Amino acid sequence: MVYTLLIKCKLLWFVQNGKVDIWDDPRFPTVKGIVRRWLKVEALIQFIVEQVAYKNLNLMEWDKLWSINKKIIDPICPKHTAVIEERRVLLTLTDGPEQPFVCIIPCHKMYEGAGEKSTTYTKSIWIDYDDALCITLARRLP
């Protein structure tokens, strides 16, 4: 794997010096470690099978593994949006709807089996502080 320390004797140093508690720490590039980072075993198997076709290629990218994992979990994991209460900013839209209304939309655009969710459209919305800062800075640019 590119930019990854995979030699067991060097990884052992992190365990012995207390940098990590155990071998299945999510920061470790071990199978148990990456599974604790919500990698599906099916994605790992598919990634390994794809690598067999490229015997001469020895540089494997993490991005490819995580994109395979995303294709597997997208149909089964609902998507939600949230704003942390301490970091929220109220944004009022000038052209927003006068009366709030609710629409039922699919949880995932590509996978109908993911279900549906209700979304409220209104003139005032909560956004994250960092997003509000970006909007403010963008409005100041010529």
Rank of each mutant, 00 (worst) to 15 (best):
A132Q: 01
P142T: 07
W38M: 05
V49R: 11
H80D: 15
L137C: 13
L12I: 02
N17C: 00
I104V: 02
P29W: 00
L91D: 06
N58H: 15
V2E: 13
D128H: 13
G113A: 12
A43R: 02
S124K: 07
Y3C: 12
R87Y: 13
E61L: 08
R139E: 12
K64I: 13
N17I: 00
K32T: 12
D130A: 05
F28C: 04
I45C: 12
D24G: 04
I135F: 08
C9F: 02
D21K: 12
C103K: 14
R87C: 09
I104S: 09
K64S: 04
K55M: 15
M1C: 03
N69G: 06
I76E: 08
A138M: 12
K109M: 14
L59R: 14
A53L: 07
T119P: 05
K55G: 12
Q99C: 11
I84Q: 12
K109R: 15
F14R: 00
N69Y: 05
P100N: 04
H80S: 15
S118T: 06
N69F: 00
L6Y: 01
C9D: 10
C103W: 11
P106N: 05
F101W: 03
T92P: 08
W62L: 11
Y54A: 13
D63K: 12
P26C: 01
C107W: 03
Y54Q: 14
R36F: 01
E42N: 10
V31I: 11
P100M: 09
T136W: 12
P142K: 10
G18A: 01
T30W: 02
A43L: 02
L137K: 14
L57N: 15
I76A: 07
R36I: 04
V31R: 05
W38L: 08
L57Y: 14
C77H: 10
V102D: 02
W62I: 06
R87K: 14
I68H: 00
I104Q: 10
L137Y: 10
L141K: 15
F101D: 00
T120E: 08
E86G: 06
L137H: 13
L11Y: 00
P78H: 07
P106E: 11
K8V: 10
K71C: 11
I7K: 09
K109D: 07
P78F: 04
T4M: 03
M110I: 15
V52R: 14
W66A: 06
D95W: 09
L90G: 07
D95I: 07
R88P: 07
